[in-house]
């Protein structure tokens, strides 16, 4: 399946949608595995918010790219190379520290994006963003609270957070990459060029990490490619698991 009439607005929206779906799926994998019942419930709440955001964005993408695809067509019938989420969201859950760091990095980015999208010239995107801002504010607060507790908790939790940061930090560069699609979207007033979100993101994340007695890692490695459908290996397994049932029964109603 190809992107159809792939206007910048459509691709731009699809990127945000894929980010939400993939992150939601990863968080949902925590179900029945969280450190406490309270956290199990909290992680699922976040996953459900993200899934709702993804569904809204897929619906809008279908209108923008004029393919008339359903949300399930986007989620279940595209191959790896057609997914345009960033690499950070697809990173495996690892331990609770890895998930916490991923949540801090992602939700801070997403909140900045949603806030900016509330003034999108695309009214539907603006409406989705208005709802998502409140949800994502909570996601960021949740990630912040846990970052503080794990960073400044025990020696073990601190070490695990350092390791998680070292693993995930390199993937943050990709979040702010500017390309033809994002520049076009920005010119059209559809949404911000992610580059412009970096100062706010960086300010918040470094402040929280500092409060959590954690040091921002240095990395020269800046993996990239997600927005062009070039993903990490574990992502293929995630999709295989997510899509196999839907694809085993083509065209049926569930």
């Amino acid at each position: 399946m190809t992107l159809g009439v792939a206007g910048a607005a459509a691709v731009y929206t699809l990127r945000a949608a894929d980010d939400c779906l993939v992150l939601s799926h990863r968080l949902a994998q925590w179900s029945s595995w969280a450190p406490t019942l309270e956290d199990d419930i909290a992680l699922t709440n976040i996953a459900l918010d993200l899934l709702g955001q993804a569904r809204g964005l897929y619906a809008r993408t279908a209108e923008l790219d004029a393919t008339g695809r359903s949300e399930d067509d986007y989620a279940f019938l595209r191959d790896e190379r057609e997914f345009v989420n960033c690499l950070l969201v697809e990173q495996e859950n690892g331990d609770f520290a890895t998930t916490t760091v991923r949540q801090l990095l992602c939700s801070t980015f997403q909140l900045a994006l949603w806030q900016s999208l509330t003034t999108s010239t695309d009214e539907q995107l603006a409406a989705i963003a208005a709802k998502a801002v409140t949800e994502t504010t909570y996601h960021r607060d949740h990630a912040t609270d846990w970052t503080l507790r794990l960073g400044d908790g025990t020696a073990e939790s601190h070490e695990r957070m350092e390791a998680a940061l070292a693993t995930l930090w390199p993937y943050t560069a990709e979040l702010f990459e500017s390309d033809a699609v994002s520049q076009e979207a920005s010119i059209l007033g559809v949404g911000p060029d992610p580059e412009s979100l970096h100062p706010e993101w960086h300010g918040y994340v470094t402040r929280v990490l500092g409060d959590a007695t954690l040091v921002v890692p240095q990395s020269t490695w800046k993996p990239s490619g997600g927005r062009q459908g070039l993903h990490t290996e574990p992502f293929g397994y995630m999709l295989a698991e997510m899509q196999h049932l839907h694809r085993s029964f083509p065209g049926v109603t569930w």
Partner: peptide, 20 residues
């Protein structure tokens, strides 16, 4: 009721557990 290590987390957990 619920369990939480501190007040902030208790409030957050209460939101997640009791106001879904």
């Amino acid at each position: 009721s619920l369990h939480a290590p501190d007040a902030e987390m208790a409030l957050r957990n209460a939101r997640d557990v009791y106001t879904r």
